[in-house]
Design a protein around this nucleic acid. Structure first.
Lengths: 151, 151
DNA sequence: GCTGAGCCTTCCCACGATGGGAAGGTCAAG
DNA sequence: CTTGACCTTCCCATCGTGGGAAGGCTCAGC
């Protein structure tokens, strides 16, 4: 199966399939005489796995470990659980951070009349010396990837 | 005041101060004969404003608009409110997305014994065909910046 | 056979926000 | 005059993804 087909079957773009190969996340597949990559069912399973882990917000370094655990019959579930717990905790941190920003914005929005007049507590808050948004002061948070999509 | 002092006073790194200037977010300051940037109180106020908006998760493009509204005495609060509402809604989307991932992970974690044995529902889920984490299927979300910090 | 569409290849560039670091100039205190 | 702390510009890296150029391959239809 060519890369396009493998991409369609796994939900990972062909561009990313090549990228994953280039960073050693996916085994280099066999090639046809003309140099076309040929993927097996097993490869598409791995790609699906990667995609699911990406959708769960894991970074590629974590995924590298998850894939290797997944493929290791003698793994211990402890390892996996630890990785996932750390990630869940990162996400929880990120949620708290975003929530505190959202709360601050909601508060400001509630006090902004939003008509044609220029006075606006939001700009006043950003222009003042007292910290407005993010939880304590400096923002914290390990990764937990973004992702943007046309809408 | 030199860039280092302005940076310390505003909480924005000197590196970022130069960057903001290079992308037109901050007026180029006057320079000494030797080429050193000289900042005024007004500049540090702008930098503080930018920093607060960054802490509230705004992207630099939004901040460009916020700064220009802030400095425009004849602005209408409507404009500001609209920008902030869109941002709050983006954050809310992002929170929902992260929460649905966190919920899925929690569910999986609850079913993983996490001992030395290799069987693990987490890997099984990622290896299966049924979508595991992210809300509907494809991840959604406009920016809402990351931020990472040593810890 | 030949042509064209639609694949595929590699390579480079971009995003957004930030930091690291090199190579070199400047300034103030000793 | 030296030393160290500052400043300058310039390039590179991060992370995950996409865009696009320039060129090669394949297959279906004529």
């Amino acid at each position: 199966m060519n890369i396009g087909e493998a991409a369609a079957a796994s939900g990972v773009s062909a561009k990313m399939v090549r990228h994953y190969e280039s960073i050693g996340l996916l085994r280099p597949p066999t090639r046809t005489a003309a140099g076309y990559r040929q993927y097996s069912e097993s490869d598409t399973r791995t790609l699906k796995f990667i995609r699911q882990a990406r959708d769960a917000g894991f970074g590629l370094e974590d995924i590298r470990q998850l894939v290797s655990l997944w493929q290791d019959a003698s793994r211990s579930a402890r390892e996996v659980k630890r990785l996932v717990e750390v990630h869940r905790s990162d996400i929880a941190d990120r949620i708290r951070e975003l929530q505190s920003i959202a709360d601050a914005l909601s508060h400001l929005l509630a006090h902004c009349h939003g008509d044609d007049r220029p006075d606006c507590p939001i700009l006043e808050a950003f222009g003042s010396d007292t910290p407005t948004a993010a939880a304590g002061g400096r923002p914290v948070s390990r990764a937990v990837n973004k992702r943007r999509v046309a809408r």
